[in-house]
Amino acid sequence: MSAIDDAATEAAEAPEEREIEEYRPHRKWYRRADIMVPVLVLVVVYALLVGYVESPNFFRTRMEAPGGLVNFDWMWFFHLIPLMLQGLLVTIKGALLGFAVAVVLGFFLALGRRAKLPFVSWPTMAVIEFIRSTPVLVQLFFWLALERAIPGLNLSPIALLMVGLGVHYATYCSEAYRAGINSVDKGQWEAATALNLSPATKWTRVVIPQAVPNVLPALGNYLVAAFKDAPMAFVIGVHGVLFFADQVAAETFRVTEPYLIAGAGFLVASLPAAWAVRQLERKIAYERI
């Protein structure tokens, strides 16, 4: 408990110890290695995943669960790893596809939210608020039901997940964009006005370049969050990491190993991702949302 006083000391000393690399406006963000390298890596990984990961129609476990009365069998546990990885890749792909939708859609929501006309901005805000505060799971079922209700429309499960996650996280992204835009100093807007810049120039040359570094880490956090929500898509038939666990459990009547290996595999993927986002966060001075 006596940590409190130390904590205060730490807080006071922290700025001296850790050197925070500040955002330097004269150096464009797209020329900074510490920003562009992670972004490029992300894009490449994204392309590879989306391009090469096929979602198999079903898992062939071809595996017999060991008999006996043991509750947990290590050998079998390790044998499940390849299957689990297969499911994990599909989950990652779903999360990335969904997030791609979110990034674009979120931009339009942010625009609508900022609109001067109240009859545009208020409904946008209501929609954002509504989607943000209701469960993705229910939303997924909603999209599924809607897809069934519209004749002629035939979406694959992963496309449904893409829509569901995309719309849900678009609302989060729009809030991140809004906060990023608001974080641009008021003086910058005034200077842009004073220089008589056109609205297009003002946005593309002044506001967006300064807002992007503030938005990127928030987007990264939401990507990780979307990844955490993606496994639930097994309910609409996406062959992700939980689908795998479910399937194995149904075939072998053993539940401990598949679910635990799913959890372990998930941590192995999500912890480095969260760590990478924190690194990005530390690299870029940005205002928390």
Binding site: L242, Y259, A262, G263, F266, S270
Partner: peptide
Amino acid sequence: GISSIILIFI
């Protein structure tokens, strides 16, 4: 780090 749905299943 863990997804809440996986945690619930576990």
